[in-house]
């Protein structure tokens, strides 16, 4: 629970203000802020109580909070959300109106959809769009069970999910990255498979320096990992990793800090970081260079669609939102997040 203390001051005040607005006694008395207990306990209590107000705040506020929260904080909020899930999910499923949309799913898609939701809310006064993250699997499961109006998934639908409807809003590509000082300019698919399955453990075997390879892999459940495994026809039990990472930035930092590392991350993030001078380079797949442009044209093989998923043919507000998310008017938002708009 110690990790939660990071950035507490602003968040805590934020939450206390929200609580006060719930109980209707603002302005809140300062002694209630400083009066009790340890910081950790206080945070847990305030989080619990702040939960019901999440639906009150706008997407803008929520997005700000998402960006400010470090992983552990988000995780904690997630825990608290689960705590109250039994109560909240029932009411949210039943009391859903024409003024509220609930989207859950992929943490890759969520930041993009949050930006879209902000713009959508400003264009449709009185409408509230609630975006929660939890991975593609959760997005699809929630859409299937009707816990969310729209699920978000950073992959195509699988065969067993045929009854769902998917709407692509953008594309994302995954590319293999090396440290900038690594002399290797390209690897064949077979070499990458051999490196990741532990058959090749030294760079000299693929034409590089005599140095052990540090294999950087993603943690289970990440859609980047799924795409990578699927493309290279590997299973997660075959992979012999030296480092397992969570998000793209951590992967880039790990590779940039180790000249013998190999990893894979989202192209958008990698291209941006490489152009910002971080010591990584993007390897082509086959003969196709890893670039956002090649993802857009669909020629880059290691790419995936970012989908909005619904249980039935969307209607009402959900249909309006999906149409909006697929329109030209959000292409600037897609590019801002280093994803690639879908060109019809």
């Amino acid at each position: 629970m110690i990790g939660e203390n990071t950035r507490l001051p602003t968040n805590r005040i934020d939450m206390l203000i929200e609580i006060d607005s719930v109980f209707g006694n603002s302005p809140h008395r300062p002694d209630t802020v400083t009066g009790s207990g340890s910081v950790g306990k206080k945070a847990s209590a305030t989080c619990c109580m702040a939960r019901p107000t999440v639906r009150r705040s706008t997407a803008a506020a929520r997005f700000r909070r998402l960006k400010e929260f470090p992983l552990s904080n988000r995780l904690f909020t997630c825990l608290v959300a689960l705590l109250s899930a039994s109560i909240v999910s029932c009411s949210s499923a039943n009391n859903r109106s024409d003024h509220q949309l609930v989207l859950t799913g992929s943490s890759t898609v969520a930041p993009l959809v949050l930006e879209m939701a902000k713009r959508f809310e400003s264009q449709h006064p009185g409408v509230r769009v609630d975006v929660q993250t939890g991975g593609s699997s959760r997005g699809i499961a929630d859409a299937m069970r009707g816990l969310a109006d729209i699920g978000m998934a950073s992959r195509s639908l699988r065969e067993e999910e045929y009854e769902l409807h998917a709407f692509a809003i953008a594309r994302d590509g995954v590319c293999v990255i090396l440290h900038r000082d690594n002399p290797i300019e390209a690897l064949t698919d077979a070499q990458i498979v051999a490196i990741y399955s532990g058959e090749i453990v030294n760079w000299s075997d693929v034409g590089g320096h005599d140095a052990p390879i540090t294999v950087v892999n993603k943690a289970a459940g990440r859609s980047t990992l799924e795409l990578f495994l699927e493309y290279f026809d590997l299973s997660s039990t075959e992979i012999r990793a030296d480092v397992v990472i969570g998000d793209n930035e951590q992967g880039i930092k790990t590779v940039a800090g180790n000249s013998n590392a190999i990893g894979y991350v989202s192209i958008g993030t990698a291209e941006f970081d490489a152009s910002a001078g971080i010591a990584i380079k993007l390897l082509p797949v086959g003969t196709v260079a890893a670039s956002v442009d090649n993802v857009a044209t669909g020629s880059f093989p290691l790419s995936r669609p970012l989908n909005l998923v619904t249980r039935s043919e969307p209607n009402g507000l959900a249909a309006t939102f999906i149409e909006f998310a697929r329109s030209d008017s959000v292409h600037d938002l897609i590019r801002e997040q280093y994803f690639v708009p879908i060109v019809p």
């Binding site: 110690i2 203390n5 990071t6 552990s72 052990p212 540090t214 030296d242 480092v243 180790n258």
Partner: peptide, 26 residues
Amino acid sequence: IPSVVYGFWGLVVLVPLIARWQPPGA
């Protein structure tokens, strides 16, 4: 000092330092 700060410092300073001596560092 918040723990992420320690972690970030570890990731960009300590781990590369160990990696130069005994890869993979992490």
